[in-house]
């Protein structure tokens, strides 16, 4: 059976290459049809915000790449509810359908995967 991978994205979309390169790992794995999920944690939840204006800081829009996750078969997308609350992000301000997890559910999620990459 294929080994499963959880990628935890902790960087804001304006943090440089980190957010994009983390996402690229998942998109590459999706092409191999591997069991993968993505968790947006800490500043990583800013990647989910709708109505971003990356051009204002001469950045490409990451949200198009995030939308591609489901096309690549990566359907398990999660965000830490606590991280959203700490940053004043409401669930209806998110541009991607994710499941919000409380702290206990985060622990269960981590236990469920063979491998975890945090970036």
């Amino acid at each position: 059976m294929a080994r499963s991978l959880l990628l935890i994205a902790r960087q804001a979309p304006w943090s440089g290459l980190a957010a994009r390169e983390a996402l690229d790992i998942v998109l590459a794995g999706g092409a191999f049809d591997l069991p993968m999920a993505m968790l947006f944690l800490d500043d990583g939840v800013f990647q989910l915000a709708a109505a971003q204006q990356p051009a204002a800081v001469q950045q490409k829009d990451l949200t198009a790449n995030l939308q591609a996750l489901q096309l690549f078969g990566v359907e398990e997308l999660y965000a830490a509810g606590r991280s959203l609350r700490e940053r004043g992000l409401a669930e209806d301000a998110l541009g991607l359908p994710v499941r919000l997890l409380d702290d206990a559910e985060l622990t269960a999620l981590l236990d469920r995967f063979d491998e975890v990459i945090t970036l």
Binding site: A2, A28, F32, I117
Partner: peptide, 22 residues
Amino acid sequence: SGLGQLHEAVQQSDRLVCFGGP
């Protein structure tokens, strides 16, 4: 080479160990 090399190696391993990051 490409990121596929990371995934392929993970599938052949008992454990992935990561170091560093942003």
